[in-house]
Nucleic acid binder design. Sequence first.
DNA 1: CCATCATTTCAATTATCGTTGAAATATGGA
DNA 2: TCCATATTTCAACGATAATTGAAATGATGG
Lengths: 117, 117
Amino acid sequence: MEKMDAVTALAALAQDNRLDVFRLLVRAGPQGMSAGQVAELLGLAPNTLTFHFDRLRHAGLVTVAREGRSMIYAARFETMNALLDYLSENCCAGVSGCSPGAREPKKLGRKKSKVSA
Amino acid sequence: MEKMDAVTALAALAQDNRLDVFRLLVRAGPQGMSAGQVAELLGLAPNTLTFHFDRLRHAGLVTVAREGRSMIYAARFETMNALLDYLSENCCAGVSGCSPGAREPKKLGRKKSKVSA
DNA sequence: CCATCATTTCAATTATCGTTGAAATATGGA
DNA sequence: TCCATATTTCAACGATAATTGAAATGATGG
């Protein structure tokens, strides 16, 4: 991830409603949620929501697909992980004794959802 | 870390110059750098820099201390780590099969500099 | 085709952001 | 004290952000 992408992603997340939207989508998992559901759950006007979705999408943090009349938005874990990596990476790069042993992946995402819910 | 703090921290990092400033300070380590050095290295006007330092400081991402005529700014790894945790935490919370085994600390900061790398 | 639902587009408004230049403050030295 | 250095404060500016209301687009069912 390049610096500009990191700034874009950070800016996309640096807003109350968008952070809510993104976290909601993350919890919804890969199958995502319709714009209408998000609007209702968060109490946002649909046009306002479109604005925020655009920002998240432009930052590569969500994907969108049409399903019938609804637009289904879903979080892109890949980008979120790249951002986390970038922040860690760059913040530790060039620093001699920076947590040399403690560099586990700590990736996000749903693993084949074994589950119940 | 609360949501508002996360948004503040994200917003503080979501800007070209500030991300540069913060990363420079991270590399400078706990001893920090004077405002003047940062200004010169990044080619920023001192007053502009003050503006950005204020945002970073307000977000708890840097500390400042006077040393002679200079102001020494230093990164606060603690806050950065809290932000990384918050992003991971909340992004995985409530998700049943979310990388259950891969949750290592991955903290930032200088560790007593063992230096092998 | 018409009516309806779901979402987006557009224009306008208010607020905040990042930068600049000029002036102010604080420290240290002659 | 006077001067130079280091940084901050202040006022102003253009640019961008978030929200709103009204209208447009696209899909579905009768």
